[in-house]
Design a protein around this nucleic acid. Structure first.
Lengths: 168, 168
DNA sequence: CAGCGTCAGTTTCTTTTGGGAACTCACTGG
DNA sequence: CCAGTGAGTTCCCAAAAGAAACTGACGCTG
């Protein structure tokens, strides 16, 4: 299949997909995030093939979103745990969960989160870091950022110009 | 490869992955979200095979996150646009973008968003809908929600119990 | 102390998918 | 009237995923 790597692409979404861009990786990460930390437990929970799980855990460790922590030697056995980078990535899972809760379960969420700061069940919403108000797509328009590469993304540049014109 | 469908799974993340669980769909959705709305433009921008793009657009339309809007008949030509459900799904893309901005571009984001309400470049953060404070994984613990299925997810149930004990 | 179970992987074999590139149709603009 | 555009479709081949069995080093139990 000669899977295309997005490593060179000038797009943050593409780079993130280099880490979680397949059917299993996000679920593996979800399991680790809720405390299912061992190979066999993840495999039993998800039912994916052991081969694929091995590969996925390897790339997660390579990307430093997960660390292997030995909990015994001889034979070596490991816990998989999220790193700081992994915690940031888990925000993506949280967004996926919110979407699934709303559109696949009609609000009857299988798993909820209790916010330790206020001790209440929380449904995180995206808020503007400038004004504090909630942001939803449609409330904001895309612009070229400091890392935009005009050469690499001519089609994107064109689309951004059109939007800029429409909102001027 | 006999790809497993997650349609039956009792997990919001899995259900969301039924829609965007592969390498290309999120990028297709990103293009549509920033206004690249036609088949050829998306194909040129992403460089994916036309066959795969056709399939991805079909499943996006089936899941009702995208609509085909004819902009001419004879020959029929279409714009692809996000639905309301698609806008909700785009929140996942926004989360991916934030992760990529931070960890792959060191803050030099290729694309930024201007919040129309306050007219400033915004980096949305997740806030608790109860107390308004920012939420990050680690600031919250997972619990059984109203839609949790003990039979379907015994391994998850066990992990949740362990966490509950650890935080009691 | 023999044998079964656990854990973390490998290995082999088959089925499916994705990529590439060429082909199709129905216009449209010069 | 001839090239170009837009939206697909078709074909072949290589690479991934799935299933299921195998490995190896314990540790527990009768």
């Amino acid at each position: 299949m000669q899977r295309s790597s997005f490593g060179e692409q000038s797009c943050s979404v593409a780079r993130t997909l280099d880490v979680i861009g397949d059917r299993w990786t996000p679920l593996v990460l979800r399991d680790i995030a809720i405390g299912i930390s061992r190979f066999d437990a993840i495999q039993r929970d998800l039912g994916l093939s052991r081969k694929v799980l091995t590969q996925r855990l390897e790339t997660l460790v390579e990307h430093e979103v997960v660390v292997r922590v030995a909990y015994q030697d001889n034979p070596p056995r490991y816990d998989y745990r999220l790193t700081e980078k992994g915690n940031d990535l888990a925000m993506v899972l949280l967004a996926m969960q919110q979407f699934g809760d709303k559109w696949a379960f009609g609000g009857q969420a299988p798993i909820t989160w209790k916010h330790l700061a206020c001790d209440q069940v929380t449904a995180p919403v995206a808020c503007c870091d400038q004004c504090g108000e909630q942001v939803r797509p449609g409330d904001a328009i895309p612009l070229r950022g400091p890392g935009f590469d005009e050469q690499a993304s001519p089609v994107v540049g064109e689309a951004l110009d059109q939007i800029a014109v429409a909102f001027s």
